[in-house]
Simulated assay, not measured.
Amino acid sequence: IISTQCISMEKWNQTSSDFILLGLLPQNQTGLLLLLLIVSVFVFACLGNSGMTALIFLDPRLHTPMYFLLSQLSLMDLMYISSTVPKMVYNFLSGQKSISFLGCGVQIFFFVTLACSEGLLLASMAYDRFVAICHPLHYPIRMSKRVCVKMILGSWTLSSINSLAHTIYTFQIPYCRSRAINHFYCDIPAMMPLACVDTWDYEYMVFVSAVLFLLLPFLGITASYGRVLFAVFHMRSKEGRKKAFTTKKAFTTCSTHLTVVILYYAPFAFTYLQPKSLRSPEEDKNMAVFYTILTPMLNPIIYSLRNKEVAAMTKLTVRCRVIAFVGHTSM
């Protein structure tokens, strides 16, 4: 049976211009249970990130640079998980593993754009905390609304240009070995083994992009928080140290942001920065679950639990909705 499936797949690969996504889950009862879990995570992530974005937009008390950047992070996470999970769920339920040539290109473009944009955004959020703690008097100037808008537009623009270049180059490579991508979405490293030409030069460019959009922002985040810790722990008085940590709830937001940074960068570094010889398709798929599914769900939870203002406003919003619902049903 396995050999017959392989022969039919090879015939399909040679005659079709579409790709096959081998997927993440097995086509059995265990896979169905895991799919239900992923769908639950997807729904929770969509509700959490859309709710966070709406809350920050509607509440004037949250119209600050820190929360403006946080709303952009929630928006990116919402788009991030929406670019991979719906197609994976559809393929599993329909039994059709194919994805069109154009659909694969669109998925690559949005995935790379959002991955790079989020890396740059996390660096911008670290810079915001650095200025708030180390240069509080200059904070209104260095982190003005105009500067925040430039940061956001810059991250989207640079990431889109980089993603467009990779997308165009990826689909100029001839694929003649197979059309079966051993992943649950169109991922560039997973597509390279399908090419019938040497792709070493392009894989090196993928590594360079990972360094520019992931490693360098991570080093910037590390430097920012290193300066913050250096400034705080070298204060002479305990009162000054306490003031530095309580200004704009700096300690809470810094620790929260560091948690998000670790959850986001660790799987990416494991996948894109280690040598090709040490990687395996199964490990790449497992790591991709973290930054495409779990992280978008965990980010609103982490920021809500660790940030008193967001948590308070979330509880107030829920309480108002409950009161409104009860009042509507009693009428």
Rank of each mutant, 00 (worst) to 15 (best):
V211T: 11
A180G: 02
V228L: 13
G220F: 02
M151A: 09
D198G: 03
L194V: 12
L212A: 15
R236T: 09
R179T: 06
L219N: 05
T259V: 07
G240M: 10
I168E: 04
Y225R: 07
W156Q: 06
V206L: 15
A231E: 11
T170L: 14
V211G: 12
M191R: 08
A165P: 00
Y175F: 15
A190M: 14
K242W: 06
T259A: 12
G154F: 12
M143S: 00
A223I: 01
R179W: 12
L194A: 11
H183C: 06
I188L: 13
Y204W: 09
Y185D: 07
A210G: 15
W200M: 08
T247M: 11
I152Q: 04
L153Y: 09
P174C: 02
L212K: 01
A250S: 15
I188N: 13
E203I: 07
T247C: 05
Y225D: 01
F213N: 10
T246V: 12
T167D: 02
A210D: 10
E239F: 01
T246D: 10
W200C: 04
K249L: 06
T157Q: 00
G154C: 15
R227Q: 14
S237Q: 04
S178N: 13
R177K: 15
C186F: 11
M192H: 09
S237F: 08
P189Y: 07
A190R: 03
Y225Q: 04
L216Y: 10
K145I: 03
V261N: 09
L137H: 10
P174L: 05
M192T: 13
T259Y: 00
S144Q: 13
W200S: 14
T253N: 14
A244W: 06
T252M: 10
V232E: 04
M192R: 11
S155Y: 00
R241F: 03
K243P: 00
I188T: 14
P193N: 09
K242E: 11
E203A: 06
T247G: 01
M143Y: 00
E239T: 07
Y204N: 08
E203P: 01
R241T: 03
A195K: 03
P136G: 06
V232F: 03
A231G: 01
L158N: 00
Q172I: 09
A231R: 15
Y225S: 04
Y225E: 01
L137V: 11
T170Q: 05
C148Q: 11
T256V: 05
I141N: 08
N182W: 07
G226V: 05
T259N: 05
V260A: 14
R177P: 01
W200K: 14
M151D: 15
S155L: 04
